[in-house]
Nucleic acid binder design. Structure first.
Length: 468
RNA sequence: GGCCCCAUCGUCUAGCGGUCUAGGACGUCGGCCUCUCACGCCGAAAACACGGGUUCGAGUCCCGUUGGGGUCACCA
């Protein structure tokens, strides 16, 4: 059997982190088995579906590099087929017309609530003759669900889950206005798209029983189901919009890398022994549903950032330079010059080791731009203040100006500074910290010797003299 | 509330009856390295929710309690 998975978001908002993980698992599972990963936009709710939301979701998926096969399927466009299936069920006696009005249903619901019981449609039109239909009321079509026995789902993650059919009522398949409900549409589409594995959040587990009933009514083969636990916020509450459920674009804006997000999301709910860092390639080889846990997990930004730091260190310097270019240019209000680009190129390996995000990186990379330091951090200002600091900086400056442009190198700079410190009877740090503040505007930076070497003699002396 | 699911360090998790005086990772706290920061390295504190069973033996199996979560629309 060919594996076909699908990600089926409803375009009512951005692609959030939980959706991204669902997409990732589906994508990984399809890749793992040489199958197809399909995208289906569940836009049957015309009031809530929006074009910007569709774009945001596709963008998010593309940014995460979760590419889908074939063209995305838009559920609303398949309405005729859904109606056709509803009518087939009507014809075969697996569905019936229900003339209950909204008011009637509302009363029923209120009554159930008053008794503190759940609302289940009572099937009042289930066996009634259509000739009794009231004038002018458009009927909804409901599933004629089995009343006895139970419905069982053999879930690849949750195991065997069973529920008594008495707990389930006759759900609406086709609304009075002739549009299909989600319950009908998913089943028809999953069947028509030959979906072999339905991997989705476990908030859908309860729906599955009713969907199984539709599959059965149509005599269609069941796909395999895998319901994965949801992701909660740091406080354990459901990840909602008010609770830090951000769109993936927000994570991009935080300077996070797609590889890092994929790795982090993979480990949220899935494990393979003690493996922590798993490249996407490796994940494709290893991913399985057996490794997915059954309990919900909490989203931990600190760990995501740590993972991101790992991928920052591993990234190609050139890739990172490209990635921060626009941020730098926005800051400068002009393009990066060739000289600046050359400095960035040389400085990137040690810069990237110190950054957890692209945002950090861009900020730290500013030291290699003309005109830097653009500001002085409080600690840097302190390192620069006082007589001791002035003496140290003067000694450093003197030691460096004694170097000729020809001998300007990391090793020579280090030697000169060490010798300068010795003759001034100061510790190296006494020269280094004021100089660092002068050159970078900060009390923390890559190796001073490296920074000075990359900056070049003129720029280094310009900055240190400006500070003096 | 009914139904369904879940329960190991603060967090993500390993563990699939004996090798668990419970392992790894993030975070936290010490230390080393060191021109600062970061990286790296070394070390520490930190968990089997509770109660009953089953068994020679239970973190691992069963039941209950408690706690969390999900779901109960002519939304998806």
């Amino acid at each position: 059997m060919t594996v076909v998975t699908r990600f089926a978001p409803s375009p009512t908002g951005f692609l959030h982190i939980g959706g991204a993980r669902t997409a990732l698992f589906n994508w990984l599972y399809a890749k793992r088995h040489g199958g197809k990963f399909m995208l289906r936009v569940e836009d049957t709710d015309r009031k809530r579906s929006t074009e910007p939301a569709i774009e945001a979701i596709l963008d998010g998926l593309r940014w995460l590099e979760l590419d889908w096969d074939d063209e995305p399927v838009f559920q609303f466009a398949r309405i005729d087929r859904h109606v056709e299936v509803a009518e087939a069920m009507l014809a075969s006696g697996h569905a019936y017309k229900c003339y209950a009005t909204n008011e009637e249903l509302a009363d029923l619901r209120a009554a159930a609530q008053a008794e503190n019981k759940r609302f289940l449609y009572d099937g009042r039109w289930r066996d009634r003759d259509p000739s009794e239909a009231p004038e002018g009321v458009k009927p909804a079509i409901r599933l004629k669900a089995p009343r006895d026995g139970e419905t069982v789902v053999n879930d690849l993650v949750q195991g065997e889950v069973r529920v008594a059919n008495a707990e389930l009522d006759d759900m609406v398949l086709l609304r009075a206005d002739g549009t299909p409900t989600y319950m009908l549409a998913v089943v028809v589409d999953d069947h028509d798209m030959n979906v072999s594995h339905v991997i989705r959040g476990d908030d859908h587990l309860n729906n599955t029983f009713r969907q199984v009933q539709v599959f059965n009514a149509m005599g269609w083969a069941l796909p395999a189901f895998a319901h994965i636990p949801l992701i909660h916020g740091a406080d354990g509450a459901k990840l909602s919009k008010r609770h830090g459920a951000l769109g993936v674009d927000a994570y991009r804006d935080m300077g996070l890398l797609p590889d890092a997000i994929r790795n982090y999301l993979l480990r949220l709910g899935w494990s393979h022994g003690d493996l922590e860092i798993v490249s996407t390639e490796e994940a494709i080889k290893l991913f399985d549903l057996e490794g997915v846990g059954r309990s919900p997990s909490r989203f931990d930004m600190a760990k995501l950032e740590n993972t991101n730091g790992h991928y920052m260190r591993e990234a190609e310097p050139e890739t990172l330079t490209t990635a921060i270019a626009s941020t730098l240019e926005t800051k400068l209000g002009r393009s990066v010059t060739d000289i600046e680009a050359a400095r960035l190129h040389k400085g990137m390996p040690s810069l990237q080791q110190r950054a957890k995000t692209l945002l950090d990186l861009a900020q730290n990379a500013e030291i290699y731009l003309d005109g830097a330091p653009f500001s002085q951090s409080a600690k840097a200002a302190k390192a620069l203040g006082g007589a001791d600091a002035s003496a140290g900086l003067a000694a450093a400056n003197a030691a460096l100006s004694a170097l000729s442009p020809e001998t300007w190198s990391e090793a020579e700079i280090e030697a000169a500074l060490r010798a300068g410190a010795e003759s001034a009877e100061l510790k190296l740090g006494k020269l280094a910290q004021p100089l660092r503040a002068a050159l970078t505007g900060s009390d923390a930076s890559p190796s001073l010797f490296e920074v000075a070497a990359i900056l070049g003699r003129d720029e280094t002396l310009r900055r240190s003299e400006a500070a003096l």
